[in-house]
C-alpha cells in the first residue's frame, strides 16, 4: 500500500547524513595532511561517506522501484491524496499497519544487509593492509 515510504524516509535521513559526513571528511583531510599523520592504514581505510553512499543507493533505488510497483497496482495515483488507501479511514489504518510492519522490516533488512557489506569491506581492507605491510618487510 505505502510500505516504500519507510525506506524512502530513511533514504532522506541517510542522504543528509552522507552530505554532513562528506563535508567533515573534506575539512579533516587537509588538517591530517598538514600534520603528516596519514598512515598506510588510513589510505587503505574506506571512508564512511563512501559506505553511506552504498546504503543510499540501495534505499533510493529500492524505494523508487517499489514505488513503481505501487503505481502499477493502482495504489499510488498522480492526484490528491496520492495514496488510494488514504481515501477512507479503514484503508488508511490498514496502510499504516503495513507501513509499521512490512515498511519497517524492509528498512531494517536493507540496513542489516548494508551492515554486513560494511563489515566484510572493512575486513578485506584490513587484510589487504596487513598483506601490504608483510610485503614491505
Amino acid at each position: 500500500m505505502a510500505c516504500f515510504l519507510v525506506p524512502t524516509a530513511e533514504a532522506v535521513v541517510t542522504t543528509v547524513m552522507t552530505k554532513v559526513i562528506e563535508s567533515k571528511e573534506k575539512t579533516k583531510l587537509p588538517e591530517e595532511k598538514a600534520e603528516n599523520e596519514i598512515s598506510v592504514d588510513a589510505s587503505v581505510k574506506i571512508p564512511l561517506s563512501r559506505k553511506m553512499k552504498w546504503l543510499n543507493n540501495m534505499l533510493w533505488g529500492g524505494s523508487a522501484l517499489l514505488a513503481f510497483e505501487h503505481v502499477w497496482h493502482g495504489e499510488v495515483v498522480p492526484y490528491f491524496p496520492f495514496l488510494t488507501a488514504a481515501g477512507d479511514p479503514a484503508s488508511a489504518a490498514e496502510m499504516l499497519h503495513e507501513m509499521a510492519t512490512a515498511g519497517v522490516l524492509m528498512a531494517v533488512l536493507v540496513t542489516a544487509v548494508w551492515g554486513c557489506m560494511v563489515v566484510t569491506a572493512d575486513y578485506l581492507a584490513k587484510k589487504a593492509s596487513q598483506a601490504g605491510k608483510v610485503e614491505e618487510k
Binding site: 510500505c3 534505499l59 529500492g62 536493507v110
Partner: peptide
C-alpha cells in the same frame, strides 16, 4: 555498474520482505 547492482539488490531485499508477508 555498482550503483545499478545496489539499486537492484535494494529492491530485491524489499520484495523479499513483501514475499514473506
Amino acid at each position: 555498474l555498482g550503483t545499478l547492482s545496489l539499486m537492484f539488490w535494494g529492491a530485491s531485499v524489499m520484495w523479499f520482505v513483501d514475499a514473506i508477508f
